[in-house]
């Protein structure tokens, strides 16, 4: 019984949240996007704005991403070795 009530409340909440979503393609805050689109190519020289953001504006983020992949490989290596020292 309590399971059904919980499910109904959850479903109603999710439905209300889905109906009140902001429409796609109309962002609220566009200052940063406009800045990247206007000045990205001139400042970095790259045609691809995604690459400009990834490797110039947010390069520290990319460093973390690469380090996570490195750590994942090291973790798999540690798990799959035979001898546990």
């Amino acid at each position: 019984m309590i399971k059904k009530i919980t499910l109904t409340i959850l479903f109603a909440f999710l439905l209300a949240a889905a109906l009140s979503l902001h429409p796609f393609g109309e962002p609220v805050f566009t200052e940063m996007d406009d800045y990247f689109i206007q000045n990205g190519q001139e400042e970095t020289g790259s045609n691809n704005i995604v690459a400009a953001v990834l490797f110039d504006y947010r390069c520290l983020d990319t460093l973390g991403e690469a380090s996570i992949l490195f750590g994942a490989a090291v973790g798999v290596f540690i798990i799959s070795r035979k001898k546990y020292v």
Binding site: G45, A52, T62, L69
Partner: peptide, 20 residues
């Protein structure tokens, strides 16, 4: 063009290739 972006792409490419 792109300054240092192609070099960083190359570095990340080598790294992702090795790790995967």
């Amino acid at each position: 063009s792109g300054g240092v972006i192609p070099l960083m792409n190359l570095a990340v490419g080598i790294e992702v290739f090795g790790a995967l």
